[in-house]
Design a protein around this nucleic acid. Sequence first.
DNA 1: ACCGACATTGCAACCGCTTGCAAAGGGGCT
DNA 2: AGCCCCTTTGCAAGCGGTTGCAATGTCGGT
Lengths: 328, 328
Amino acid sequence: MSVTLKEVAELAGVSTASVSRAFTDGASVSASMRARVRAAAKELGYLPNALASGLTTGRTKLIGLVADNFHNPIFLEVFDRFTRGLQGRGLRPLIVNLTDETDPATSVTLLRQYSVDGVIVASSTLPPTFARAFRDAGLPVVHTFGRRSADTAVDIIGIDNIACGALAAETLVHRGYRRIAFLGGPERATSTQDRLTGFLRASKGAAAVSHSFARAYSFEAGHEEMARCLATGLAEAYFCGDDVLSIGAIAAVRQAGLQVPEDVGVIGLNDMEMAGWSTIDLTTIRQPVGPIIDASIARIIALLQDPSARPEVLTLPCHLVERGTLRR
Amino acid sequence: MSVTLKEVAELAGVSTASVSRAFTDGASVSASMRARVRAAAKELGYLPNALASGLTTGRTKLIGLVADNFHNPIFLEVFDRFTRGLQGRGLRPLIVNLTDETDPATSVTLLRQYSVDGVIVASSTLPPTFARAFRDAGLPVVHTFGRRSADTAVDIIGIDNIACGALAAETLVHRGYRRIAFLGGPERATSTQDRLTGFLRASKGAAAVSHSFARAYSFEAGHEEMARCLATGLAEAYFCGDDVLSIGAIAAVRQAGLQVPEDVGVIGLNDMEMAGWSTIDLTTIRQPVGPIIDASIARIIALLQDPSARPEVLTLPCHLVERGTLRR
DNA sequence: ACCGACATTGCAACCGCTTGCAAAGGGGCT
DNA sequence: AGCCCCTTTGCAAGCGGTTGCAATGTCGGT
């Protein structure tokens, strides 16, 4: 089927070992040998077989990329950057779509079978134990968008959720909103809890603070939860768990005949690409997706080099992006 | 590092061949042997190494998934369905992000090195020659969202772009719009050309028909192109190349102080998830993404069985989804 | 001319698993 | 009991590369 090392060796009249070395940087080969082999290889259209080489070296250059949020537009950016970033460094992403199951066991099994060199878990909702399962299986792992837990068992790269919650509350209070509310993502997610903590802590200046949770990070969930708020008691401004939730919430407000930002203010989190579209024009807290992902890739590469490195937690700063859903 | 076949064989007191067979369905093994091996395997936590097995069988169960539209929200659905669909059938997607290069050579090289069993090219803008390059390299390939070309060299699964263009024109004419326009995606894409052909062919009833092209499938491009139309001469209704383009176009219309659908009608194509959000509420032509992807997966699997099967072109029907950007 | 150090190359075992082939075992039948 | 056939198992040779070790060649120095 495809050309093998041996055929190249025969054509070049050298041993297979030399051919192998000619394709390995830093190997002990003379320049002439390298040229000779390369020429023969080119003539035959030879391509080294990554699987075979992975089998002997124990390195496949495959990185498992595990995610559970395939419906959130922010994922477009996350995904684009991860795939490009990994490709650019000679690594290949092997995707695991967790949409229907959140038990780590199957993912671990799957990725181990393919001998991935490392794993990136990209999710703000999966529990710390999820990422840990990979480490327990001996795989280097980075939990991107993760949140620090009591015992830092794996590397975590993300944002400071408490600070984000605080920033949101401060922003609302500072804008003169008196009755403010937290409309969070799924209640179980530790990120949600942290944001709420920060939000409450920094909302001292407000007259009233309430909070509730949407069942998922989706338009419908945001819409539903805001509809519930409209029925039970409306605040002047809401900090929503993410941009999609915000958009759903805004839709509900408008359907009730109220205006944003005149009657109700909304601030989101993420700053996904479409938050900036003039049709949406969402005021939100920007999560530095690019830097987070770059750091994650850098970290996983460092772990490939030295798998025993101590896990670290890296949090990157978020900042406010002012648009049209909060009054000045 | 990890447990191997040999270790299981030793523990079970059998040959490695038997262990291998115990993990292969349909192999010639007795039930008792299978049970015995399974027990030993479980005790050791053995997992078959997919790479090693791929090396000997020539089957890796890896499918290359090549795409170039990582910024379009429709991609969320495409991607979610592909990854789930492939996973569900025991195949693993190996992603290639084409965002910055559209030369097939590197992708082909890359995927061949990893010995993928087959390739799915998911793009409506890549030329037929792109997918062909994989076939020429001996890889089974399906071009999803592709468009039939003169000589059908690879399998194609998508929509009938001519019919879509016609459906759009008919819909506009039928709604009483007199001066209608085609605001297409990138001009080079054959899909764009086909849609224009269909659009023109079916717009006999209109008083005036114009057309122009956006430089990409993006919000900005749609906004820009519509701004140009506003400046040069506005039609009563537009058929945009896709939903994102439509949203950009609508934004431009509104920014000019005009109303949609009162002053200008807009109809998109795709029916991505957010087109249905009440904030967007876009009238559009639904592209049956689910069926297209299911068919693509089924087809690639068929090709794995019989790589010599003659290429086929499968087009699935689109239909109108009425929402709020076209008058009744 | 001789010796040692160093750079290159080839040999061959091995990475973990599959599979054709032959040997062994187990019936059923005459 | 003897024979044939079918099922089950083990042997061993790969799949395509990598790499430790030994062999060879080269070169400078004395």
